[in-house]
């Protein structure tokens, strides 16, 4: 006996995969821009723990002296990135898919259980529908982060004509820091996401491409799949 579990809707899959190269281009061109004034670092007292970014990193990615390049790509692809993000929000809202996505009352408590389970500390994973509690929270936060990047981006880009947006971000310098931190968080999200997808296995990954999972009886006992 085989089960077909319909998981991700077609628009969700398209927008997910379109977002991937777009976000990559935005981050890459963002680093080209950041290089021209790379003032951020993590400090404890006066000691620099980590400088954004080390020379070797710049060299490996061919970053130096490409500010004009970076701006041209960033301010061209931002439109596609924003449109795709907006369509996703609209689709998720109107299709009712948001019901599976937005954290509910249980999510905040359950998310810990998911994390403990993923770290191998707790054996049993909490029950889930399409997304588990940790996924609900992170996939909702990532959308808010995308919105934050757009807002802080405009705050840096048009600080005079959109002065109120810049003020909302706490000023010009502060908007640039917010924009930068959000980018770092996107990268961290991506790393965790990849690890989880690999851990969750083929069936889960396939569902993001084809839309459904195929489960035969034998595999049925192992219900745990998270990504």
């Amino acid at each position: 006996m085989t089960k077909i579990i319909h998981k991700h809707k077609l628009p969700t899959r398209w927008m997910h995969w379109i977002n991937f190269p777009l976000l990559t281009i935005m981050i890459w061109s963002g680093i080209l821009i950041y290089w021209a004034n790379d003032v951020y670092s993590i400090k404890v007292g006066n000691t620099i723990i980590f400088k954004f970014f080390p020379e070797s990193f710049y060299k490996a990615l061919n970053i130096p002296y490409r500010l004009a390049d970076g701006m041209a790509f960033h301010f061209s692809f931002m439109w596609l990135f924003m449109i795709n993000g907006l369509l996703y929000v609209l689709y998720t809202g109107f299709s009712g898919e948001w019901r599976y996505l937005i954290p509910d009352k249980k999510s905040w408590k359950e998310a810990w259980l998911v994390v403990l389970h993923d770290l191998g500390i707790r054996k049993q994973a909490p029950p889930q529908l399409k997304y588990n509690a940790a996924q609900r929270i992170s996939y909702t936060i990532i959308i808010i982060m995308g919105f934050g990047s757009m807002i802080s981006g405009f705050a840096i880009y048009k600080p005079v004509q959109l002065q109120w947006v810049t003020m909302l971000c706490g000023g010009y310098e502060s908007a640039r820091i917010i924009h930068f931190i959000l980018t770092i968080l996107f990268v961290l999200f991506f790393l965790v996401h990849i690890i989880q997808v690999i851990k969750a296995g083929w069936n889960n990954f396939r569902a993001m491409v084809v839309g459904f999972e195929i489960k035969s009886e034998k595999i049925n006992k192992d219900e745990n799949n998270n990504s």
Binding site: Y100, V209, I214
Partner: peptide, 22 residues
């Protein structure tokens, strides 16, 4: 999330769909 239980021929159809999607 809709779950359906399928026989062998339908499963084959889904597997073909999966290949086309890839």
């Amino acid at each position: 999330m809709k779950t359906i239980i399928v026989d062998e021929t339908t499963e084959k159809r889904f597997r073909r769909r999966s290949i086309i999607a890839f």
